[in-house]
Design a protein around this nucleic acid. Structure first.
Length: 473
RNA sequence: GGCCAGUUGGUGAAGUGGUUUAACACACUGCCCUUUCACGGCAGCAUUCACGGGUUCAAAUCCCGUACUGGUCACCA
């Protein structure tokens, strides 16, 4: 029995949106469920798209998500190199092998000829497909062109008739008619392989057992199978996964900024929560469990339960997951987590550690992402407060002024400023002004904080400080 | 346009012929708890599974057709 091996194969663009990440999650879980290996391979055959530092970025991202990379460019195993641009010779060699076998051929067609073909096709409202012009070149003709140094590509010779069956773990058997298959390019004129070719070669050479990728590649898989057959290689298991759509149901793109993992991370979304949310987007466990640790995930994951239809990214549910994870953070971890957001937004130099801790601690059950705390604590850092319509109309009610007057007196009378004494003060107001519940708390809350929602009132008052509270009254 | 796939509530989804008068979760609404807010708890929220036919004693579940959505048809990955 072969050891299960999956691979994450991004191109090094320095950007990872949640759709890519989700694919990585699935790949990781499939491998780890079988105690297999998770491999990172960099697909940089398009040299124009290369971005500096992108490989480290991918390592960082995956490590934040708790994925252990068993083999990759920075920790090579026995199947290296793990960067496609360093494997050029390998692809070339295999392409030539196919030419030898008659499954591929040299093509010397010029850009101009191809363009003309394309033009004609679009005129006839037909999809362009290479006409196989060079497919029947004789050995002598080929050698002559080669000797003359005419630029060439190597194309795969597709069968013209019959059909190819693609077996997929989530979609079942898909039948593709061979007549729709183009004699696709395997090796480009710059000597680099195309994505489709490099993929097949690498996946085989690296002993990948499960190829997990976006559903958009499903149709292409017939070509892959033909390639595997031509080499006489065993095909991997295919796991095609449906797309993740943006919140509006449209395709995710770079433009849809907040769907990038790093952006979410920088906003204060915990990688564990992101992973947990994403794995449930397009996959569901047999039980009703929703919050999963990595180990539980590895245990529960079954690729057969990946859904066939695409799903929409929903930040509200992500918020819920993230809030769950924030609540479960230890006090220390939580503090380390939110403090950077606070420091970034406010000058904390004059605040005591005790004060900062107290402030932050009352929000652990309130926020759904780290940066949210910045807005929440605004009332403690601003001098002026402005009331919105709702607050204003509340404050116009009868008795509000009496309540506030009584409250002010109580506050002034406090000598030992702490949460308990403030609670007592509020309680005294209840007696004095003869109000309770909402009519007691709301006027005070609005007067001191300017908003109708917030953390525990005594804490709020305590943190604001006597001076500020009196000033606002 | 050809080919391929998908279609269960605002969202993620369970469901593979009868125990489903369609689970669970997010969101939303209401109530309770808390002397306020939030947290938490409880309840409500699809008479119906894109639509139309068929098979069957019985269909969200099987078959056929239609519609819609998406993908794919590059010397991009």
């Amino acid at each position: 029995m072969k050891k299960t091996r999956t691979r994450f194969a991004p191109s090094p663009t320095g950007y990872m949106h949640i759709g890519n990440l989700r694919t990585a999650i699935f790949e990781y879980l499939i491998a780890k469920k079988d105690n297999g290996d998770f491999i990172l391979r960099i697909e940089d055959t398009d040299q124009t798209r290369k971005v500096e530092g992108a490989i480290d970025f991918i390592y960082d991202t995956l490590s934040l998500c708790r994925f252990k990379i068993d083999e990759g460019p920075n920790n090579e195993g026995e199947y290296g190199p793990y960067i496609q641009s360093e494997r050029i010779d390998i692809y070339k060699k295999h392409a030539l092998e196919l030419v030898e076998k008659g499954a591929a051929y040299y093509c010397f067609c010029t850009e101009e000829r191809l363009d003309k073909l394309r033009e004609v096709a679009s005129l006839n409202k037909q999809a362009f497909m290479y006409d196989g012009h060079c497919r029947n070149l004789s050995k002598e003709e080929v050698d002559e062109m080669l000797a003359k140094g005419v630029p060439y590509v190597i194309r795969q010779a597709m069968p013209k008739t019959g059909e190819t069956i693609v077996s997929d773990v989530v979609y079942g058997d898909i039948v593709i008619n061979n007549s729709v298959l183009e004699d696709q390019i395997l090796i480009k004129s710059d000597g680099y392989p195309t994505y489709n070719f490099a993929n097949v070669i690498d996946d085989h050479l690296m002993n990948i057992t499960h190829v997990v990728r976006g559903k958009e590649y499903l149709d292409q898989t017939a070509k892959y199978n033909l390639l595997y057959d031509a080499f006489g290689w065993e095909k991997p298991e295919y796991v095609h996964v449906a797309m993740v759509l943006g919140e509006d149901g449209s395709k995710l793109s770079k433009r849809n900024g907040d769907a990038s993992f790093m952006d979410l991370y920088n906003e204060g979304y915990l990688p564990d929560a992101i992973v947990n949310y994403l794995v449930l987007l397009g996959w569901s466990p047999e039980t009703n469990q929703e919050v999963f640790s990595m180990d539980e995930l590895i245990n529960a994951f079954d690729p057969k339960r990946i859904s066939k239809s695409s799903s929409q990214y929903d930040v509200k549910k992500l918020n819920w997951f993230n809030a769950q994870y924030i609540k479960r953070l230890s006090m220390d971890d939580y503090f380390d987590f939110v403090l950077p957001f606070l420091k970034d937004a406010y000058n904390l130099d004059e605040k005591s550690d005790e004060w900062i801790h107290h402030l932050v601690s009352i929000y652990q059950n309130h926020i759904s992402y780290g940066k949210e705390i910045v807005n929440e604590v605004k009332i403690f850092f601003e001098d002026d407060i402005t009331l919105d319509e709702e607050c204003l109309s509340f404050m116009k009610q009868d008795g509000v002024n009496d309540t506030l007057k009584a409250f002010k007196e109580e506050i002034e009378a406090i000598s030992d400023w702490n949460v308990d004494s403030i609670s007592i003060a509020i309680n005294n107001v209840k007696e004095k002004a003869g109000v309770k519940g909402k009519m007691l708390y709301m006027p005070i809350r609005i007067a001191v904080s300017g908003v109708m929602h917030g953390p525990e009132l005594p804490d709020t008052i305590y943190l604001l400080g006597k001076e500020k509270v009196l000033k606002r009254l």
